[in-house]
Amino acid sequence: MSVPVLRLGDVLIASIQAALTDRDLLQLRDDLSDQVGRFRARGVIVDVTALDVLDSSAIRTVRDLAHTTRLRGARTVVVGIQPEVAFAMVQLGLTLEGVATALDLDEGLALLRQEDA
């Protein structure tokens, strides 16, 4: 299942809608990295609101994705980590260090605008 990527000005928004396999997440990483160049995006938002589980492998992939798009020149924010998922991530000891996070899409966009200013 591929993740649709929306464009909002110079921001790409990937809204993950279902339980994804690692392969889907890796595909998303490659797609976003490519689209940052194609659309000259300056920001990327990865919305994980719909994800009810982020295991160590998925967390690693999301982290790599964020670092990759950042290296491509786009600020990347992960938004919508659910409270239960956040608790589990803390237990796993994997807290997406070095990756910007925000409560939801609105806050994520606000964060990107702030950094633009």
């Binding site: 009810d52 589980v53 295991d55 160590s56 492998s57 409270p83 239960e84 998922v85 608790f87």
Partner: peptide, 17 residues
Amino acid sequence: SKTEQTFIATAISEVAR
């Protein structure tokens, strides 16, 4: 609880992986 459900689902995901 929802948190416990998430912990169980995450642990299953780790061992299945």
